[in-house]
Design a protein around this nucleic acid. Structure first.
Lengths: 193, 193
DNA sequence: CCTGACCCTTAACCTACCTTAAGGTTTTTT
DNA sequence: AAAAAACCTTAAGGTAGGTTAAGGGTCAGG
């Protein structure tokens, strides 16, 4: 019923796990199904789990004072999603996480993860590398927001996430790159001519 | 001549080091002085070292096609600075790192760091936590760029980096928050009235 | 087959921010 | 001490992108 093979494979691309570590992981992880539009995290709640996506598509976003949504992250098969800030500090999150498509995740609670870190340093290594990669991605995004035009950001998005382009609504992509859907529509028209 | 106490103290705020780890670290780390405006990294070079700042002030920035500089990060006492993307992939960096004030850093080469990781898992832990915190910071910055006005971003900057406000030129702050110095000047005037 | 919830586009008008250019002050270098 | 470089401000005019409003297409459910 619960198959953590995809997760183990993902980890072993970075560092091999011995049997003991693999079993410890299996014991801590639980699987969960999320329906379309169902929340995995809501603003004001403390984020208590890391989530590894087995299939489907999730998003993490912020809602500003005007009620506008701003997407911080998408996560599909093989990706992780959580509000790490909230998870670490036990402070209420400012974000929502929900499903754009029905999804299935493996989740692991913060305390269990700490336990894994202590007993199996391989997990420290794995999450260090994982976070370093995520950090570099965020850095590139900051650079683009500061230095590029919306059109350039859109083209970069298509290059970097080709599998998302015809999988999620345009309005979500607009929100991710930081423009209104109307303006993104205009950008696309300009690109075609 | 080489005193790594500030670095050890910084690490031990996160995880204690045994004598052996401390000595291994001391053996790998070298100190270096940087004059004002001197480069620690130039675009096109591969970043080979992590740098821990003992004193002074450094910045990492990108120069776009038009020749405009965009600041990604400042680093002062107790901060780390490096192009982690380049360091990891051995690809040439797109960034420059230079000194806004004369500075002194402790640097450690990538290979030596890997060696430390293998022999002392405590370093995996330390850099995992370090990177997680940096990641959260970048995430907040992305959110602000997407959802806030320049004035709000400026106020947040003052809140988050009060020690930098009257230490670095205005033009650098403008570059960091993603506006022109002229416009930041206007923002300040509006804030005073 | 019809209805309603999304989803995408177009267009007119508006605003936050950029560009260019100039002048004054402070800091660094010679 | 002078010259040069860096720094900060002001203001006029321009542009990228936002806002509002409307219309049409698609698809799931009744």
């Amino acid at each position: 019923m619960k198959d953590i093979t995809p997760l183990v494979q993902h980890i072993e691309k970075i560092i091999p796990l011995d049997d003991e570590a693999r079993q410890a992981l299996a014991a801590k992880v639980t699987s969960r199904k999320i329906r379309r539009r169902q929340y995995l995290l809501q603003e004001g709640d403390v984020c208590r789990h890391y989530n590894f996506v087995l299939n489907g598509c999730l998003r993490m976003y912020l809602v500003d004072e005007k009620g506008t949504e701003h997407v911080l992250q998408f996560a599909t098969e093989g990706g992780w999603i959580a509000d790490i800030g909230s998870l670490h500090t036990d402070q209420p999150s400012h974000f929502f996480i929900d499903a754009l498509e029905p999804a299935e995740v493996l989740r692991i609670a913060k305390e269990d993860l700490i336990d894994l870190y202590v007993k199996h340093p391989a997990f420290d290594r794995y999450f260090r590398v994982l976070t370093e990669n995520a950090f570099v991605g965020m850095q590139q995004r900051v650079m683009q927001n500061i230095s590029s035009t919306a059109e350039t950001r859109y083209l970069h998005f298509l290059e970097k996430y080709p599998h998302l382009f015809n999988r999620i609504p345009l309005v979500q992509i607009a929100s991710f790159i930081g423009v209104t859907p109307e303006f993104l529509s205009k950008i696309r028209r300009n690109l075609m001519s």
